[in-house]
Amino acid sequence: MKMKSTLLRTLPLAVFLAGAAQAELSAPEISLTIDAYHKSHDNALGGRAEGWGLSHTELAVKQQFGNLMTGKLTAVMESNKHETDFSIEEAYLQTLSLPAGLTLRGGRFLSDIGYLNGQHPHADSFVERPLLYRAFLGGHYYDDGLGLSLVMPTDLYWRISAEAFDGDKLAETDSGRTIGTWALSTTLGGDLSDSQSWQAGVSYLRNRTLAEEEHDHHHHHDEHDHEGHSHGAEYTGKHLYLADLVWKWAPQGNNRNQQLTLSAEYARVTDPNEHAGNNEYHEGWYGSAVYRFAPQWSAGLRHGRVDVQMGHGDHFHEGSLEETAVMLAWNPTHTQTLRLQYTNQNVRKDWRDTFAAESDDVLTLQYIISFGAHDAHSF
Protein backbone atom coordinates (compact mmCIF):
# COMPACT_ATOMS: atom_id res chain seq x y z
CA MET A 1 0.00 0.00 0.00
CA LYS A 2 1.28 3.42 -0.91
CA MET A 3 2.61 5.38 2.06
CA LYS A 4 0.73 8.59 2.72
CA SER A 5 2.54 11.87 3.33
CA THR A 6 2.36 12.92 6.98
CA LEU A 7 2.39 16.65 6.23
CA LEU A 8 -1.31 17.34 6.69
CA ARG A 9 -1.70 14.67 9.38
CA THR A 10 0.75 16.36 11.74
CA LEU A 11 -0.52 19.92 11.25
CA PRO A 12 -2.90 20.04 14.27
CA LEU A 13 0.02 19.40 16.66
CA ALA A 14 2.67 21.22 14.65
CA VAL A 15 0.78 24.50 14.53
CA PHE A 16 0.68 24.76 18.31
CA LEU A 17 4.31 23.79 18.72
CA ALA A 18 5.22 26.47 16.21
CA GLY A 19 3.05 29.03 17.96
CA ALA A 20 4.56 28.25 21.34
CA ALA A 21 7.91 29.40 20.01
CA GLN A 22 6.63 32.99 19.77
CA ALA A 23 7.98 35.13 22.57
CA GLU A 24 5.19 37.64 23.13
CA LEU A 25 2.08 36.01 24.61
CA SER A 26 -1.19 37.44 25.85
CA ALA A 27 -3.48 35.72 28.33
CA PRO A 28 -5.37 32.82 26.70
CA GLU A 29 -9.13 32.99 26.24
CA ILE A 30 -10.87 29.90 27.61
CA SER A 31 -14.51 29.04 27.02
CA LEU A 32 -16.86 26.15 27.73
CA THR A 33 -20.16 25.60 25.91
CA ILE A 34 -22.59 22.93 27.14
CA ASP A 35 -25.30 21.71 24.77
CA ALA A 36 -27.77 19.49 26.67
CA TYR A 37 -30.97 18.11 25.21
CA HIS A 38 -33.84 15.65 25.40
CA LYS A 39 -35.17 14.17 22.17
CA SER A 40 -38.44 12.23 22.03
CA HIS A 41 -37.50 9.86 19.16
CA ASP A 42 -34.73 9.16 16.67
CA ASN A 43 -35.25 10.62 13.21
CA ALA A 44 -33.70 10.09 9.79
CA LEU A 45 -30.19 11.51 9.38
CA GLY A 46 -30.53 12.74 12.94
CA GLY A 47 -27.60 14.41 14.65
CA ARG A 48 -28.82 13.52 18.15
CA ALA A 49 -29.98 10.26 19.72
CA GLU A 50 -33.30 9.68 21.44
CA GLY A 51 -33.44 10.52 25.15
CA TRP A 52 -31.17 12.70 27.27
CA GLY A 53 -27.74 13.62 26.00
CA LEU A 54 -25.00 16.13 25.35
CA SER A 55 -24.37 17.26 21.79
CA HIS A 56 -21.34 19.25 20.69
CA THR A 57 -20.25 20.29 24.17
CA GLU A 58 -16.95 22.08 23.59
CA LEU A 59 -13.97 23.38 25.52
CA ALA A 60 -12.02 25.99 23.55
CA VAL A 61 -8.69 27.71 24.21
CA LYS A 62 -7.66 30.67 22.09
CA GLN A 63 -4.22 32.27 22.33
CA GLN A 64 -2.74 35.28 20.54
CA PHE A 65 0.96 35.13 19.76
CA GLY A 66 2.04 38.74 19.59
CA ASN A 67 0.88 40.52 16.45
CA LEU A 68 1.81 37.62 14.22
CA MET A 69 -0.86 34.99 14.71
CA THR A 70 -3.59 33.50 16.84
CA GLY A 71 -4.11 29.85 17.74
CA LYS A 72 -7.20 27.93 18.73
CA LEU A 73 -7.81 24.47 20.18
CA THR A 74 -11.38 23.13 20.47
CA ALA A 75 -12.13 19.78 22.12
CA VAL A 76 -15.65 18.39 21.68
CA MET A 77 -17.60 15.81 23.68
CA GLU A 78 -20.87 14.18 22.63
CA SER A 79 -22.71 11.76 24.88
CA ASN A 80 -25.96 9.80 24.74
CA LYS A 81 -27.38 6.52 26.01
CA HIS A 82 -25.30 4.55 23.49
CA GLU A 83 -21.81 5.99 23.91
CA THR A 84 -19.61 8.97 24.73
CA ASP A 85 -17.31 10.39 22.09
CA PHE A 86 -14.39 12.84 22.34
CA SER A 87 -12.75 14.60 19.40
CA ILE A 88 -10.51 17.53 18.51
CA GLU A 89 -12.48 19.73 16.16
CA GLU A 90 -10.07 22.66 15.86
CA ALA A 91 -6.32 22.97 16.36
CA TYR A 92 -4.90 25.68 14.14
CA LEU A 93 -2.79 28.78 13.81
CA GLN A 94 -4.02 31.80 11.84
CA THR A 95 -1.99 34.79 10.73
CA LEU A 96 -2.83 38.33 11.82
CA SER A 97 -0.44 40.53 9.90
CA LEU A 98 -0.18 39.39 6.29
CA PRO A 99 -0.49 42.24 3.77
CA ALA A 100 -3.32 42.99 1.32
CA GLY A 101 -6.10 41.41 3.35
CA LEU A 102 -4.60 37.92 3.24
CA THR A 103 -5.08 35.37 6.03
CA LEU A 104 -3.35 32.00 6.19
CA ARG A 105 -4.62 29.22 8.42
CA GLY A 106 -3.04 25.82 9.07
CA GLY A 107 -4.00 22.82 11.17
CA ARG A 108 -7.48 21.43 11.79
CA PHE A 109 -10.33 23.84 11.18
CA LEU A 110 -13.87 24.27 9.85
CA SER A 111 -14.08 24.74 6.10
CA ASP A 112 -15.42 28.05 4.77
CA ILE A 113 -17.84 26.37 2.35
CA GLY A 114 -21.52 27.23 2.60
CA TYR A 115 -23.23 29.64 4.96
CA LEU A 116 -23.41 27.52 8.12
CA ASN A 117 -20.38 25.26 7.89
CA GLY A 118 -17.85 27.73 9.31
CA GLN A 119 -20.06 28.37 12.36
CA HIS A 120 -20.13 26.24 15.48
CA PRO A 121 -23.43 24.35 15.92
CA HIS A 122 -24.26 26.09 19.21
CA ALA A 123 -24.64 29.33 17.22
CA ASP A 124 -27.40 27.82 15.05
CA SER A 125 -31.03 28.87 15.29
CA PHE A 126 -32.31 25.27 15.18
CA VAL A 127 -31.50 22.11 17.15
CA GLU A 128 -29.89 20.29 14.20
CA ARG A 129 -28.28 21.41 10.97
CA PRO A 130 -30.42 21.32 7.79
CA LEU A 131 -30.76 17.99 5.99
CA LEU A 132 -28.28 18.88 3.25
CA TYR A 133 -25.53 19.44 5.84
CA ARG A 134 -26.28 16.18 7.64
CA ALA A 135 -26.40 14.23 4.37
CA PHE A 136 -23.50 15.73 2.41
CA LEU A 137 -21.12 17.18 5.05
CA GLY A 138 -21.60 15.07 8.17
CA GLY A 139 -23.28 18.00 9.92
CA HIS A 140 -20.29 20.31 9.54
CA TYR A 141 -17.05 19.63 7.72
CA TYR A 142 -13.70 20.11 9.45
CA ASP A 143 -10.38 18.56 8.47
CA ASP A 144 -6.60 18.86 8.59
CA GLY A 145 -5.11 21.19 6.03
CA LEU A 146 -4.21 24.68 4.92
CA GLY A 147 -6.46 27.61 4.05
CA LEU A 148 -5.86 30.98 2.43
CA SER A 149 -8.46 33.74 2.38
CA LEU A 150 -8.47 37.22 0.90
CA VAL A 151 -10.76 40.14 1.74
CA MET A 152 -10.92 42.31 -1.36
CA PRO A 153 -10.49 46.12 -1.12
CA THR A 154 -14.01 46.84 -2.40
CA ASP A 155 -16.99 48.80 -1.08
CA LEU A 156 -18.96 45.58 -0.81
CA TYR A 157 -17.69 42.91 1.52
CA TRP A 158 -16.00 40.36 -0.77
CA ARG A 159 -14.09 37.39 0.59
CA ILE A 160 -12.36 34.66 -1.42
CA SER A 161 -11.14 31.43 0.18
CA ALA A 162 -9.07 28.45 -1.00
CA GLU A 163 -8.47 25.37 1.13
CA ALA A 164 -6.69 22.00 0.85
CA PHE A 165 -7.35 19.10 3.26
CA ASP A 166 -6.28 15.51 3.63
CA GLY A 167 -9.98 14.56 3.34
CA ASP A 168 -10.00 11.86 6.00
CA LYS A 169 -12.74 13.50 8.08
CA LEU A 170 -15.15 13.70 5.15
CA ALA A 171 -14.52 10.10 4.10
CA GLU A 172 -13.96 8.78 7.64
CA THR A 173 -11.18 6.63 6.23
CA ASP A 174 -7.53 7.01 5.23
CA SER A 175 -7.73 7.86 1.54
CA GLY A 176 -3.98 7.56 1.06
CA ARG A 177 -3.85 11.02 -0.47
CA THR A 178 -1.89 14.04 0.70
CA ILE A 179 -4.70 16.29 -0.59
CA GLY A 180 -7.94 14.37 -0.39
CA THR A 181 -10.25 17.37 -0.74
CA TRP A 182 -9.87 20.96 -1.82
CA ALA A 183 -12.38 23.80 -1.79
CA LEU A 184 -12.98 27.23 -3.25
CA SER A 185 -15.55 29.71 -1.99
CA THR A 186 -16.47 33.34 -2.33
CA THR A 187 -18.85 35.51 -0.33
CA LEU A 188 -20.33 38.94 -1.09
CA GLY A 189 -22.33 41.11 1.27
CA GLY A 190 -23.49 44.61 2.04
CA ASP A 191 -26.21 46.92 3.32
CA LEU A 192 -29.39 47.72 1.41
CA SER A 193 -30.38 50.41 3.93
CA ASP A 194 -29.91 51.26 7.59
CA SER A 195 -32.23 48.38 8.45
CA GLN A 196 -31.40 45.76 5.82
CA SER A 197 -28.29 43.74 4.98
CA TRP A 198 -27.52 40.75 2.79
CA GLN A 199 -24.92 38.12 2.05
CA ALA A 200 -24.54 35.64 -0.82
CA GLY A 201 -21.98 32.97 -1.49
CA VAL A 202 -21.00 30.11 -3.78
CA SER A 203 -18.67 27.22 -2.92
CA TYR A 204 -17.12 24.21 -4.58
CA LEU A 205 -15.59 21.13 -2.93
CA ARG A 206 -13.61 18.54 -4.88
CA ASN A 207 -13.58 15.14 -3.20
CA ARG A 208 -10.56 13.09 -4.29
CA THR A 209 -10.92 10.40 -1.60
CA LEU A 210 -13.27 8.24 -3.69
CA ALA A 211 -11.57 5.45 -5.62
CA GLU A 212 -12.80 5.25 -9.21
CA GLU A 213 -13.45 1.53 -9.10
CA GLU A 214 -15.30 1.32 -5.77
CA HIS A 215 -16.97 4.56 -4.65
CA ASP A 216 -20.74 4.72 -4.62
CA HIS A 217 -23.39 7.19 -3.48
CA HIS A 218 -23.50 6.15 0.12
CA HIS A 219 -20.87 6.30 2.82
CA HIS A 220 -21.65 3.30 5.02
CA HIS A 221 -21.57 3.72 8.80
CA ASP A 222 -22.31 1.44 11.68
CA GLU A 223 -25.59 1.26 13.57
CA HIS A 224 -24.81 4.24 15.84
CA ASP A 225 -23.83 6.65 13.13
CA HIS A 226 -27.20 8.39 13.02
CA GLU A 227 -26.86 9.23 16.69
CA GLY A 228 -24.52 12.17 16.39
CA HIS A 229 -21.02 10.68 16.50
CA SER A 230 -20.35 10.26 12.79
CA HIS A 231 -18.77 13.26 11.12
CA GLY A 232 -18.39 11.74 7.66
CA ALA A 233 -20.69 12.46 4.75
CA GLU A 234 -23.55 9.97 4.26
CA TYR A 235 -23.91 10.67 0.54
CA THR A 236 -20.78 11.44 -1.42
CA GLY A 237 -19.59 12.31 -4.90
CA LYS A 238 -16.61 13.82 -6.64
CA HIS A 239 -18.03 17.35 -6.85
CA LEU A 240 -20.07 19.35 -4.33
CA TYR A 241 -21.56 22.70 -5.34
CA LEU A 242 -23.15 25.04 -2.78
CA ALA A 243 -24.99 28.35 -3.06
CA ASP A 244 -26.31 30.43 -0.15
CA LEU A 245 -28.29 33.64 0.31
CA VAL A 246 -29.09 35.50 3.55
CA TRP A 247 -31.15 38.64 4.19
CA LYS A 248 -31.51 40.35 7.56
CA TRP A 249 -33.77 43.14 8.75
CA ALA A 250 -33.52 45.01 12.06
CA PRO A 251 -34.91 48.50 12.85
CA GLN A 252 -32.08 50.94 12.13
CA GLY A 253 -29.65 48.04 12.36
CA ASN A 254 -30.32 47.45 16.07
CA ASN A 255 -30.87 43.70 16.33
CA ARG A 256 -30.96 43.48 20.12
CA ASN A 257 -34.73 43.91 20.31
CA GLN A 258 -36.00 42.83 16.92
CA GLN A 259 -34.60 41.04 13.87
CA LEU A 260 -35.85 38.98 10.95
CA THR A 261 -33.43 36.61 9.21
CA LEU A 262 -34.24 34.79 5.98
CA SER A 263 -31.71 32.27 4.68
CA ALA A 264 -31.55 29.57 2.02
CA GLU A 265 -28.96 27.17 0.65
CA TYR A 266 -28.82 24.76 -2.28
CA ALA A 267 -26.37 21.87 -2.74
CA ARG A 268 -25.67 19.44 -5.57
CA VAL A 269 -23.31 16.45 -5.36
CA THR A 270 -22.36 14.95 -8.73
CA ASP A 271 -20.56 11.78 -9.84
CA PRO A 272 -21.73 9.52 -6.98
CA ASN A 273 -20.05 6.57 -8.70
CA GLU A 274 -18.30 5.65 -11.94
CA HIS A 275 -21.60 4.67 -13.61
CA ALA A 276 -23.37 7.97 -12.90
CA GLY A 277 -24.56 10.03 -15.82
CA ASN A 278 -25.60 13.66 -15.94
CA ASN A 279 -28.97 12.86 -14.36
CA GLU A 280 -27.62 10.83 -11.43
CA TYR A 281 -26.72 13.20 -8.61
CA HIS A 282 -27.68 14.08 -5.05
CA GLU A 283 -29.18 17.46 -4.26
CA GLY A 284 -30.65 19.28 -1.31
CA TRP A 285 -32.02 22.64 -0.25
CA TYR A 286 -33.59 24.46 2.66
CA GLY A 287 -35.17 27.78 3.45
CA SER A 288 -35.55 29.24 6.92
CA ALA A 289 -37.07 32.26 8.64
CA VAL A 290 -36.12 33.27 12.18
CA TYR A 291 -37.78 36.24 13.88
CA ARG A 292 -36.55 37.77 17.13
CA PHE A 293 -39.78 39.42 18.26
CA ALA A 294 -38.55 40.46 21.73
CA PRO A 295 -35.07 40.90 23.27
CA GLN A 296 -35.16 37.41 24.83
CA TRP A 297 -37.49 35.55 22.47
CA SER A 298 -37.31 34.24 18.92
CA ALA A 299 -39.25 31.84 16.73
CA GLY A 300 -38.27 30.06 13.56
CA LEU A 301 -39.51 27.92 10.69
CA ARG A 302 -37.33 25.84 8.37
CA HIS A 303 -38.22 23.51 5.52
CA GLY A 304 -35.81 21.44 3.48
CA ARG A 305 -35.36 18.37 1.33
CA VAL A 306 -32.70 16.01 0.02
CA ASP A 307 -32.97 13.82 -3.08
CA VAL A 308 -30.36 11.09 -3.26
CA GLN A 309 -29.38 8.29 -5.63
CA MET A 310 -28.97 4.72 -4.38
CA GLY A 311 -26.43 3.02 -6.63
CA HIS A 312 -27.02 -0.62 -7.64
CA GLY A 313 -24.19 -1.39 -10.02
CA ASP A 314 -24.78 0.62 -13.15
CA HIS A 315 -28.31 1.76 -12.28
CA PHE A 316 -29.84 3.96 -9.57
CA HIS A 317 -32.92 4.22 -7.39
CA GLU A 318 -33.97 7.69 -6.28
CA GLY A 319 -35.05 8.52 -2.74
CA SER A 320 -36.24 11.71 -1.10
CA LEU A 321 -36.62 13.02 2.43
CA GLU A 322 -38.38 16.24 3.46
CA GLU A 323 -38.14 17.92 6.84
CA THR A 324 -39.98 20.79 8.50
CA ALA A 325 -38.83 22.26 11.82
CA VAL A 326 -40.59 24.82 14.03
CA MET A 327 -38.79 26.25 17.04
CA LEU A 328 -39.30 28.68 19.91
CA ALA A 329 -36.25 29.95 21.80
CA TRP A 330 -35.79 31.89 25.03
CA ASN A 331 -32.48 33.64 25.76
CA PRO A 332 -32.56 34.77 29.42
CA THR A 333 -28.96 36.01 28.93
CA HIS A 334 -26.69 36.28 25.90
CA THR A 335 -24.88 33.10 27.04
CA GLN A 336 -27.98 30.92 27.49
CA THR A 337 -30.57 29.44 25.14
CA LEU A 338 -33.56 27.28 25.97
CA ARG A 339 -35.11 25.97 22.75
CA LEU A 340 -38.16 23.82 22.06
CA GLN A 341 -38.38 22.38 18.55
CA TYR A 342 -40.92 20.23 16.72
CA THR A 343 -39.61 18.38 13.66
CA ASN A 344 -41.68 16.52 11.06
CA GLN A 345 -40.16 14.30 8.37
CA ASN A 346 -41.79 12.93 5.24
CA VAL A 347 -40.14 9.84 3.76
CA ARG A 348 -41.27 8.12 0.60
CA LYS A 349 -42.69 4.74 1.65
CA ASP A 350 -40.25 2.55 -0.28
CA TRP A 351 -37.28 4.46 1.22
CA ARG A 352 -38.09 3.95 4.89
CA ASP A 353 -35.39 1.29 5.24
CA THR A 354 -32.78 3.69 3.87
CA PHE A 355 -33.91 6.73 5.87
CA ALA A 356 -34.33 4.70 9.05
CA ALA A 357 -36.26 6.57 11.75
CA GLU A 358 -38.29 5.66 14.80
CA SER A 359 -40.80 8.41 14.21
CA ASP A 360 -41.79 11.06 11.66
CA ASP A 361 -42.58 13.48 14.49
CA VAL A 362 -39.91 14.52 16.97
CA LEU A 363 -39.95 16.95 19.89
CA THR A 364 -36.60 18.22 21.20
CA LEU A 365 -35.82 20.38 24.21
CA GLN A 366 -32.36 21.97 24.09
CA TYR A 367 -30.42 24.00 26.64
CA ILE A 368 -27.16 25.77 25.76
CA ILE A 369 -24.99 27.65 28.24
CA SER A 370 -21.56 29.20 27.64
CA PHE A 371 -18.87 30.15 30.13
CA GLY A 372 -15.91 32.43 29.50
CA ALA A 373 -14.94 34.34 26.38
CA HIS A 374 -16.20 33.18 23.03
CA ASP A 375 -15.99 34.46 19.47
CA ALA A 376 -18.61 36.80 18.11
CA HIS A 377 -21.13 35.08 15.89
CA SER A 378 -20.72 35.64 12.16
CA PHE A 379 -23.29 37.28 9.87
Rank of each mutant, 00 (worst) to 15 (best):
H312C: 08
F86C: 10
A162P: 08
Y291K: 02
H374P: 07
N279K: 04
L7T: 03
E58F: 15
K62V: 14
F16E: 13
D244W: 03
L68G: 00
A267W: 03
W351G: 00
W198N: 07
G319P: 06
E50R: 15
L11T: 07
L170N: 05
S87F: 03
K349Y: 08
T324S: 10
T70P: 05
L260C: 12
I34N: 15
Y204T: 04
M1R: 14
A233Y: 03
F379L: 06
T95I: 04
F86Q: 10
E172G: 08
Q94T: 00
R348P: 02
E234T: 12
G106N: 11
W297D: 09
G147H: 08
S193P: 12
Y281M: 06
R206L: 12
H377L: 10
M69H: 01
Q196M: 14
P99I: 13
L363N: 09
L240K: 03
E322N: 10
S26L: 05
Y291E: 02
E58D: 15
A329N: 03
N273C: 12
F86P: 02
T364R: 00
N279Y: 06
Y281D: 01
H215G: 06
H317D: 13
T178G: 05
H224G: 09
F16P: 13
A27N: 11
S193C: 14
R206P: 08
G372I: 07
R108A: 04
R108F: 07
A250V: 03
V308T: 11
V347C: 10
L102N: 08
V246F: 12
G51P: 02
Y142F: 14
D216V: 15
A356T: 10
Q258L: 09
D168F: 01
D222V: 01
G139A: 06
T209C: 01
W158N: 12
G53T: 15
Y286Q: 05
E90I: 07
R352Y: 10
